[in-house]
Simulated assay, not measured.
Amino acid sequence: MTDSQLSLQLLLAGAFFIAAIVMDLYKEKIPNKLCLLAIFCGFAINAYYAQLQGALMALFGFALAFIILFPTFILRILGAGDIKLMMGIGALMGPQLLVWSLAYGIVAGAGTSLLLIIWKTGFTGMAMTLKRYWDCFYLRCYFKPEAGEAAGLRVPYAPALALGWLWACSLDSEISQLYFNWHLYLGLGTS
């Protein structure tokens, strides 16, 4: 993979994540147009730089994201926008970086979800949820979440997916080499 291809892929993936985070945080929805643009760019860039092999890599990343994440949609863990966004990232960045991004995104999701829940409901909402869980356990009966309670919230997952992608990028040797090359090119190398 050339430095120009990888630079373009990273720039676009970063832009798609930024747009998705903004939309997910403020509208609780990742637009289909953004996801379709990510998918199209993934196929176009990979096919342009690596012809058939690039198109197949994009297809594999796209399909793998769907295969891994579709069950999370069925179980109502992730929304359709999150899945379509990651299908675009899979088409753009390939299957290997996709898998690591998802793995690290799960870890990052624990922290971002907790922060977003506290941001939206405060510690009062967390306390209400813990009390309800205790009541459910103690009385062996399910009680639906009340208004203002943390358990009743939908938490945007685009921030966690973006952090997982950044984490995966930071550990990728090819991306680290590109970063080093850019530092040398810009004269920011070590003295």
Score class of each variant (00 low, 15 high):
P156H: 06
A151V: 04
A103K: 04
T124M: 07
G90E: 05
G189K: 14
Y26D: 14
A19H: 09
L184I: 13
M86L: 15
Y133A: 14
L52M: 10
A158H: 03
G61H: 01
A63K: 02
F143E: 08
A147D: 13
G90F: 03
Y26K: 10
F70A: 09
N181A: 03
A63G: 12
A158G: 03
F60S: 11
F16H: 00
C169T: 00
K120E: 12
R140L: 02
G88A: 04
A19Q: 10
F16V: 08
W119S: 12
R140P: 02
A44S: 11
G187R: 01
E28T: 14
A65F: 07
D82K: 06
Y26T: 15
K27L: 09
C41F: 12
F123D: 05
N46G: 11
A20G: 10
L36M: 14
F66G: 07
Q53T: 09
I39Y: 05
A160R: 04
A44G: 12
L75E: 10
K27Y: 09
C169I: 00
L8D: 10
I30L: 07
Y142T: 14
L178H: 02
D135E: 12
K33F: 11
L6D: 14
D172A: 03
L188T: 02
L75W: 15
L10G: 11
P145H: 05
L130Y: 11
G54N: 00
I45H: 04
T112H: 01
M57A: 10
L36P: 07
D172M: 03
W182F: 06
A65I: 13
F123E: 08
A50Q: 12
A127I: 03
K33Y: 13
L36I: 12
L78Y: 01
G164F: 05
A44I: 02
F60R: 08
I45R: 06
W119N: 12
I106Q: 07
L188F: 01
R140W: 01
L102F: 00
P95W: 06
I30D: 12
F16Y: 07
G61Y: 00
G109F: 00
I77S: 11
Y138K: 06
T112F: 05
S4N: 15
C35W: 02
D3V: 06
V22I: 15
G42V: 13
E146K: 08
Y179R: 03
G90H: 03
Q9E: 15
V155Q: 00
